[in-house]
Amino acid sequence: MQPFTTLTGIAASLPEQNIDTDKIIPARFLKTIKRTGLGKNLFDTLRYDESGAERPDFVLNQPAFRHAEILLAGENFGCGSSREHAPWALLDFGIRCIIAPSFADIFHGNCFKNGILPIVLPADICAALQDDATLGGNARLSIDLSRQVIIRPNGEEIAFEVDEFRKHCLLNGLDDIGQTMQLIPAIDHYEARLAASHDWMPGVMVG
């Protein structure tokens, strides 16, 4: 996983509430067996019309925001399915940070596994950042994960909360599995205990 330390980039505003995972990446694009290549279909139905042409009014189609790396989203962003294709599509497009008043749980967790930083901030602060974003490339936002601050174009700093363990993983580009593998003795011990106390529990039998 690519580490996330600091990021300075263009922010695009997509303030609609309840942007669901089908909107982020519709089910028909989930037939891939790879993690990459989904960026071209990110927000597919919002981004393209029936003929496949770009909708000029959609924010990521506008020249100022085509290279956005920060997404300013609305409440309950990422609700719906558990598909990790949603953060994969965002990452493949180039989004490394999403700021919203709230996120759906599974999507929020999936972001961290892919080097994307989701930040929760009160709606009024999100609205102020959205005003900044209207300036496009003339108003880049900076994010400093180790200090847990967003730096607005006017220099003002906004603090944000992040789970300590997840922050550690993002800063160092650590994947969870490698770390959990170090706990194998504890897992072995748990399993031995389980086998004794729950000896009635059979394995999966589909032979």
Partner: peptide
């Protein structure tokens, strides 16, 4: 429900964080 990274985590470790 879990994402694919967690699917891999469970396959490898039978646990989740």
């Amino acid at each position: 429900g879990i994402g694919t990274s967690e699917v891999e985590h469970v396959l490898a470790t039978q646990t989740l964080l």
